[in-house]
Write a protein that binds this DNA or RNA. Sequence first.
DNA 1: CGCTTGATTATACAGTTGAATAAGAAGGCT
DNA 2: AGCCTTCTTATTCAACTGTATAATCAAGCG
Lengths: 217, 217
Amino acid sequence: MPPTRRIYRREGEESRRSALITATQSLVAEGGPEAATVRAIASRAGVTAGLIRHYFQTKEELIGASFRALMDSMIQTGADAAKMVDTSPEGRLAAFVGSTLRPPVMEAGSVVLWAGYMHKLRNDPDLLAVHEAAYLAFRDTLQDLIAALPRKAPAAQHRAEAIAINALLDGLWVEGSLLPDSFAARELITIGLRSTGAILGVDLLKPTDLLPEFGKS
Amino acid sequence: MPPTRRIYRREGEESRRSALITATQSLVAEGGPEAATVRAIASRAGVTAGLIRHYFQTKEELIGASFRALMDSMIQTGADAAKMVDTSPEGRLAAFVGSTLRPPVMEAGSVVLWAGYMHKLRNDPDLLAVHEAAYLAFRDTLQDLIAALPRKAPAAQHRAEAIAINALLDGLWVEGSLLPDSFAARELITIGLRSTGAILGVDLLKPTDLLPEFGKS
DNA sequence: CGCTTGATTATACAGTTGAATAAGAAGGCT
DNA sequence: AGCCTTCTTATTCAACTGTATAATCAAGCG
């Protein structure tokens, strides 16, 4: 008998590409880069392996695209929280801080996914540029929020403050994602807000009683 | 003619084990976990692949040992800087901060190496325990330094402060290692000292004019 | 000095990897 | 309808993976 051939639907290019990218991300998050083989990716995306080379010339290209997508989504979450208009400057900064310290950003999967791409940055200048751009975009958002605060601080200081707070949030994000059981429920958010406030000389804990509502999509 | 067999020396167990661990680390740092194949590791360590299984029952065991070695060396550097006796409490804390923000800790290789092991933490409880122990050891050293400061702050606050400063240093470490060209020479150390001081309410910049001398081995 | 021991090498193996190619199916065009 | 381009699958390939096992040689001991 003729070998029964798999039935399939034709899908738009965008749909297939994003399905492959999503599949790649979930595999890297679960089992690291070595788990993201072309066959595993294809299987999870519901297609066969050969299709990958139809949309991405090489596997590296797919890896790069999925890294880009991750970075985009990370800075997007923060940018959304920073855009809230009907709030005080302190409230927007607090919302920004909070959004990075709770799911979906603060999750074991995100950190592991991010770490999984890390070593590729050293050998691939394009990927490094993506990383640098995302880092600077995140920091610039932060710096704008800092500049909007009602306080007397020289603008020259804003850069250093943004670097410090960005680092603080990164560190809390990593630790909280990797060791979720080592911290009480909202402990890291409180610590993030208090420390950010200390660095900037403002009080962020007061206006954030409503914070659990912020950042919900 | 008879195939010439490779000449070799017998080495002590400790020497071979550490050679294999070092080789594993340098390969992971350079090309990520996927570059650390048994053959590459053996070649770099100057032995043949089969020998690995003589010292480590499986490759995973070797990976675990090299992760342990990395974590040990990381916390050791900080502990050494914190142990300086003939200095003020502020001076010791400043030395601790500085030691994490300069080589050999702050290096692209270190971060990439650390990130390379990351995803294994999710599936291997033993490795996760190693990571947690190292993280807590680092934080405890920090907390002791904080407790020794001459200031009026409730001891209950020390834990939160140590978590925050640890996160800050982690974040600066990652960013500085990954994007070394984005920061001026001692910029990150200054930022680390100023921010740590702000979180704790002390001045760390003053007593650290000699800081470049600290932490040199 | 000869012998035993076990550290080390060499070879083999089954499975998997990323990539290449050819065949077939779906849908748009006229 | 019929053709033609684009998408999708199936199959193949050489290279590489971790592990297992057998052969061999270095070195310490009697």
